[in-house]
Design a protein around this nucleic acid. Structure first.
Lengths: 191, 191
DNA sequence: CTAATTTCTTATCATAGATCAATTTTAATC
DNA sequence: GATTAAAATTGATCTATGATAAGAAATTAG
């Protein structure tokens, strides 16, 4: 939990009271590789802060195909934003890709805190804005890039993600098949 | 300007002081069809609130291809979120698709207001969250749907957009060519 | 260390959607 | 309303990527 506080304090010094309230609603959890934090069934509205390790959120289509929405490492938030912020119930999963430590929050509780401490809400606001910019960039990428270009951009942007993400998940993040990704990788290796 | 205040007041009653401050930093503008609000060159950070009419934001690739990021009508905000919220300077354009009335804000000024009036910031926060959910949904659609399915979903979601958006712009929003869209439309018409 | 899974690669073939080019339809302008 | 320009359609290819299948490599479990 100290890690989250430390992280927030990069943007905003927290009073003892704020810290106490944050801790009160948080739940630290250790995850094995492959462990599911949030499954498609449960419509719990939770936000996940990653202390260490790596997680991903994905959607499984009727045909059983997985589509990765997000990867997250240390100091990132990951959640099912569709369930969280709209009333539609998306059928999303969040799973851990390695041994990870996370902090869980019920959206409702977190929201109360933001209402109570506007300065904290300000920090979150900046986070939301950054996320919007990132999502827009991703959409632009999906609209404009070829499989190869998407993968190369991925390598650039996710270089600090260590090698814990299997390629088939990267493919599902880029919107291509594992086979295509494999070809692209070969092509890059040969050049 | 009254329209924005009226719109905000659906979520939050505004004090006279708040209204005054909002008006102070706003600039109402009337746009002809085809008029550009924000061009790729100018790196002004502005937010646009649509009072009436219809606008779109798009990116023009090196090869001159246009890719539409967003359409917006009455009561929507539209901006170049990439320039706005990240330091990358995206080369984005916002143009009016019909006669429109909009209200412009300098991001900086708006930000000051949010800092000054936390309750207003709360309203914006909800707006940001909704946008994130919408963007995630769009990404999911781009990852999972065929051209036909994307178009059908578009028709559902944008039915209230009157018929002011030319098909080639819809195509550029869906990530397909105008020719493909035309074929999809024909197929739908025949079934 | 070996066996069993899971992931990755490679090859072949199929196809949705792109590209190019020409025509028709619709809308804008004088 | 006639002329011009913009947008939409259609047809004929072409191509990037998907689908299927099978073997190789890597990881996990016993």
């Amino acid at each position: 939990m100290d890690e989250l506080i430390e992280y927030i304090e990069k943007s905003l010094p927290l009073s003892e009271e704020m810290k106490r309230d944050l801790v009160k609603i948080s739940k630290v959890k250790h995850l094995e590789k492959g462990e599911i934090v949030l499954s498609e069934k449960s419509h719990r509205k939770i936000q996940v802060f990653v202390v260490s390790g790596c997680l991903r959120s994905f959607y499984k289509s009727e045909k059983g195909k997985e589509h990765t929405l997000q990867f997250a490492i240390k100091n990132w938030w990951i959640s099912d934003y569709i369930t969280l912020f709209s009333n539609a119930n998306s059928i999303m999963c969040i799973e851990s890709l390695s041994y990870s430590k996370v902090i869980l929050f019920e959206e409702k509780e977190l929201d109360k805190i933001y209402k109570q401490y506007p300065t904290l809400a300000m920090v979150q606001r900046v986070g939301l804005q950054n996320r919007i910019a990132a999502l827009q960039k991703r959409i632009l990428g999906l609209l404009t890039l070829s499989a190869k270009e998407k993968y190369q951009r991925f390598l650039d942007e996710y270089e600090f993600f260590e090698k814990v993400i299997p390629n088939y998940q990267i493919a599902s993040f880029l919107g291509i098949t594992p086979e295509s990704l494999s070809r692209v990788r070969k092509e890059i290796a040969l050049s």
